[in-house]
Design a binder for these strands. Structure first.
Lengths: 233, 233
DNA sequence: AGTCACTTCCCCCGAAATAGCGAGGAAGCG
DNA sequence: CGCTTCCTCGCTATTTCGGGGGAAGTGACT
């Protein structure tokens, strides 16, 4: 396992990630192993051993917004065993049947991982077996699966194009103040009052932040500030 | 190490976390080990082996917004060795001197961890030794430190009061659509157009979402939707 | 069979935010 | 000592948003 993690640290392109995902699948002895991530700007990438037809269908149908695994992982920190999830609801059952038909497997374990700037990824192993066997497998491999998720994400972030230049993004202290209070629900007048400056001045900061962030309006600017981790509310 | 991680999984209060942080410090053989987290709503908590006077001073001075370790970790995924950071700038040097005076140590290694709803935590080990010794220590213990950070955060999230009941929060599909497009910078008119509904209808969704989220205005509602992971932009 | 949540549409009007100009002073960096 | 960035304040017009009323159809769950 350590050898695989060290190989992951050395990987230099997506093809290597793909190869390592297959190698890791064999190491764990499961049907599938998938690492899938969404950048802060919405692009999706992934590598793993799912049927390419299933991956295409997943993207095409925008299953990301239905998949209970994703929905659940997006709101929790703990890794999740698929059996714990709520699979009720018509669209969800349709999705589940579709997944089964594409050989995803009846058991699964997914680790959510979060990076800066709203980056979010999931690392999944799935398999076909009975509940008891699966439970034992998870208990024995939980720590290694968490580490694997971490190392996959670490490498994936290096591959994202607009990650390094993004570091240049910077808001001035006053701009941060403005965005922070706006994110807390203050009106412009309230923010200006809180910061003890005129509302006109405040507007300059908001405008300035908007331009820096390439945002269309204040709401957008606040949303981007949050997503990019520029403000700590 | 595994014994400590398993004890972490069983911990039931902050005092146990504190005890385990001391036990883990002894395991690693470092001067200090600290886990510090900021909830999505801005409260700060922590446990670890720093001098309480330093912790108090850190909070009082709002060093969170100056500390280059925090600032850097907030924008990256990789753990960071303090030596890699940029310690220039007057406020930063003042902070650094202040930290030294409180016995923090000249070497440090910090792992950032992110949870849902904008939760953010750092796990730090610090020590006083030469660069070479420290580098070797980090190389040997990197994986265990990452796992430790993960397990600390896993437990910390359980202690947060409004974390579990929050799962009840739910936006309707249309409300999610509205919040999503607003977060993308669309104006009300554009969102209404995109969803092919009248702007009046859209307003009903925004109002509805605002009330559910307890938000003061649209910007606040979008900010909360993002923080709580209710929308995936 | 009734309640409840969701979706869709309409009216009005005052308050708030946005967009386009402008300028001067303080602080930090090379 | 300039240069840049940041902070501060001003004006006006237009657009957007917020809050207050309504009403009606669908589906789900009880």
């Amino acid at each position: 396992m350590i050898a695989i993690l060290e190989a992951l640290e050395q990987a230099s392109d997506l093809a290597e990630l793909q190869a390592l995902s297959e190698r890791m699948r064999d190491y764990f002895g499961v049907d599938h192993l998938v690492y899938h991530w969404v950048s802060g700007t919405g692009e999706q990438y992934g590598c793993g051993t799912y049927d390419p037809a299933w991956v295409a269908r997943y993207l095409e149908k925008d299953y990301l917004r239905i998949d209970p695994v994703v929905q659940s992982c997006y709101q929790r920190f703990h890794p999740v065993d698929w059996k714990q999830l709520n699979w009720s609801g018509k669209p969800v059952r349709d999705f589940q049947r579709d997944a089964m038909d594409h050989g995803v497997g009846n058991q699964g374990f997914t680790v959510p991982v979060r990076g800066p700037s709203g980056q979010f990824a999931i690392f999944t192993v799935s398999h076909s077996c009975d509940d008891c066997t699966w439970h034992a497998f998870i208990e024995n491999n939980r720590r290694e699966l968490i580490l694997a998720a971490h190392y996959f994400n670490q490498k994936a972030l290096e591959f994202e194009p607009d990650r390094a230049p993004d570091a240049a993004m910077h808001l001035s202290p006053r701009e941060v103040d403005a965005m922070t209070f706006l994110a807390m629900g203050y009106s412009r007048a309230q923010v200006a009052d809180t910061l003890s400056i005129s509302e006109h001045t405040l507007r300059v900061y908001i405008e300035s932040a908007r331009h820096k962030l390439g945002a269309a309006n204040t709401t957008h600017a606040v949303a981007r500030s949050l997503q990019q981790g520029l403000i700590i509310v």
